[in-house]
């Protein structure tokens, strides 16, 4: 998109919808916003039909507020809950067929490099456990093997929430779901380990309980992907419907899972570590 295309022509502003004008005047385009000031500025995410109290909706909100360069970012998603909110933001969104997001993102990243050689364009895939680790597994893995320079974020709700509650490869062992009444017989797929082995240069596993840390991780993943190679974030985003979590307790659940099996893990290659140390020392990270 680019900042030039976001700003309306003089004289035209008064005819634009209020939400758009607010976005220009009070939104994050072309300036630095601190994610800790959520609630003070107009967010690029708009109203969406995700469930009340959805932790994935919360993660999508923090994700959009954390983008280092929202006016030059393209987000890809696939069938699943997250796309319901991802598509309702002032950032171009591409809806892939189920499972092919990382293949589409590979082509898009290369095309943007050719079309805009002098500009920084960020490509981010945000898809669920089904889209990335089950149905899209091969395309996800192969994009990492090819060292494609974009960020992949898995919003893991541990179930096929949209279609009635089938178990996914990321459902925990033993869990009983509406469409998996016998209980799951296998462990969760070790997604972050696979990412490291497949060549991701920056890999994080987290439960989004701290907005500051979540934002930092998202920014780091995007910045590392610009220069070095594929990056991957595995975020726990519970499904309060299929796992019967009362809406007011989704944060409590996220904190409990953080203590249990979603403790914060961050892996990066040596060159990425040096890169972060350098830019964070110089405070060049655009917030």
């Amino acid at each position: 998109m680019g900042l030039r295309y976001v700003q309306p022509a003089p004289g035209f502003k008064e005819y634009l919808p209020k939400d758009y004008v607010d976005l220009i005047d009070f939104g994050p385009f072309g300036k630095e916003v601190d994610v800790q000031h959520l609630g003070d500025f107009k967010e690029i995410l708009e109203e969406h039909p995700m469930c009340a109290g959805c932790w994935m909706a919360y993660f999508v909100r923090v994700f959009y507020a954390s983008l280092p360069n929202p006016e030059d970012t393209i987000v890809l998603g696939t069938a699943g809950c997250a796309r319901l909110a991802l598509s309702q933001a002032a950032v171009p969104f591409i809806y892939g067929n189920y499972g092919d997001t990382n293949a589409v993102a590979s082509g898009l990243t290369r095309a943007l490099k050719i079309r805009f050689p002098d500009k920084t364009k960020d490509v981010v895939v945000v898809a669920g456990d089904g889209g990335l680790m089950d149905i899209g597994f091969s395309m996800t893995m192969h994009s990492w093997f090819r060292k494609e320079k974009f960020t992949t974020i898995m919003v893991d709700n541990e179930v096929y929430g949209n279609t009635g509650g089938q178990e996914s490869g990321m459902s925990p062992k033993g869990v009983q779901l509406k469409m998996a009444p016998k209980g799951k017989k296998f462990e969760k797929i070790p997604a972050t380990e696979l990412a490291k082995q497949a060549g991701c240069v920056y890999v994080v596993k987290l439960s989004p309980t701290s907005v500051k840390r979540t934002a930092k991780v998202i920014r780091r993943a995007i910045l590392a992907a610009r220069h070095f190679g594929p990056t991957f974030i595995h975020a726990y985003t519970s499904c309060n419907i299929e796992y019967s979590i009362p809406t007011e307790e989704v944060l409590k659940d996220a904190r409990e899972r953080e203590k249990k099996d979603f403790g914060f893990e961050e892996y990066m290659t040596d060159e990425v570590r040096e890169f972060f140390e350098e830019i964070e020392k110089k405070k060049e990270v655009k917030k």
Binding site: Q36, L38, G39, D40, K42, E43, I44, L45, E46, E47, M50, A52, G53, C54, W55, A57, Y58, R61, Y64, V211, V250, L251
Partner: peptide
Amino acid sequence: KQCTLFCPEANTLMFDEERNTA
């Protein structure tokens, strides 16, 4: 200003700097 950081909906739970209240 902690509640505004944890609302799952965007542009919903806001903070008014002048009145210092959510």
